[in-house]
Nucleic acid binder design. Structure first.
Lengths: 207, 207
DNA sequence: GTCTATAAACTGATAGAC
DNA sequence: GTCTATCAGTTTATAGAC
């Protein structure tokens, strides 16, 4: 791996672990095994290197999410696959955590990938949910945009709860909770079943 | 206000705006209008002052939440009041944001109030939801602990989305979304109504 | 109690040798 | 390209005058 690559990867790790303010150029250089001059040869400075790191992290995050979003199965299957995907829960979200960094949010260039990534996640999830509604998998009462924002928020907030507790338990509970709430919107067939006391039964396969 | 008080209040503001790592003793002193010696006379150092500030913020947060939790009305009324309460959305949660600060999470004393506050929020919300279920307001299918974790996560994640977007819109959408999902669990009466196409009507008053 | 002075380490960057 | 040297400013204190 080239020196520039090692610097970017080291910056990605440190930004995830310690944030922008908590990450010094020196720390990045040491982790990358590079000297001062080497870093300033490849990058204009800390913000420039951070931008490269943040862009790569954002890109990677979208690619991983798209794997679940574009998979086969019902809308709820895909949302469940996304939420239940293996994650480094206690490390938190490498993109979401940057929203707490005033120096990142104060720099339009650094902020843009953060903004775009979370906006893309909401849009893409809204599309998946809207598709599920059109197919008759999901209740018409469900607002795809609002539900999408809720799903992304549960994920971001789940990380916060897990880190505070030092345990994945509250994260898992939050995910379980929102999936349970979404299940109640799985077509009106489900609602009528629940009303007649047979809610525990699975739905029939899709046509 | 005494010098010690001014230092604590200044620390609270700066911890909210810039986090622990991003807040220097010098910045706290300047905002408080106090000298170096003054701060070190009243507090052992940055961690000690931060602890006083974090404890106060945590206490205030619990007190505000308890206002809504212990209010009158149905469980859903109280959860709605809590979620819809006026908030400084773009500033984020002064307690939740500390979970992103490795120096806070690495110090057991600083971490404790953060952990305890978010755990208390989940427990208290679970109690409110369990009470609503016992009263027959909420569906038996709803898991109070999971739903409570979801509600707190939506709040914490909503802040993240709002800060990323630079707008309260995704926060409001996430809240609207989770309240919409919860509404589907408002007693089985609601489910049968939705199944029969009269879901827009309000529920009858409680006995 | 509050102030100024001092200090060792770190931060973010530049200069110039190799 | 990579290195070491240097630097002005900041961070987190401590010391001691008032």
């Amino acid at each position: 791996m080239s020196t520039a690559e090692r610097l970017i990867e080291s910056a990605r790790e440190l930004l995830w672990e310690r944030g922008y303010t908590g990450t010094s150029p020196k720390a990045i250089q040491q982790r990358a095994g590079a000297g001062q001059g080497s870093m300033y040869h490849h990058f204009a400075g800390k913000p420039d290197l951070a931008l490269a790191a943040i862009r790569r992290t954002a890109e990677e995050m979208r690619a991983k999410a798209e794997e679940q979003f574009s998979a086969s199965g019902t809308a709820l299957d895909r949302v469940t696959a996304y939420l239940r995907r293996e994650r480094d829960v206690l490390k938190g979200c490498p993109v979401g955590r940057l929203t707490q960094d005033p120096d990142v949010m104060g720099d339009p260039a650094l902020r843009a990938p953060v903004d775009e990534t979370l906006a893309w996640l909401r849009e893409r999830l809204a599309e998946v949910l809207a598709e599920g509604r059109e197919r008759g998998e999901l209740d018409d009462a469900l607002d795809p945009r609002a539900a999408a924002a809720t799903v992304v928020a549960v994920l971001q907030g789940g990380y916060v709860l897990a880190r505070a507790a030092g345990s994945v338990q509250p994260f898992d509970q939050a995910i379980t909770g929102v999936l349970g709430l979404l299940t109640a919107h799985v077509s009106t067939i489900c609602a009528s079943r629940r009303a007649s006391g047979t809610g525990a039964e699975p739905l029939p396969p899709l046509s």
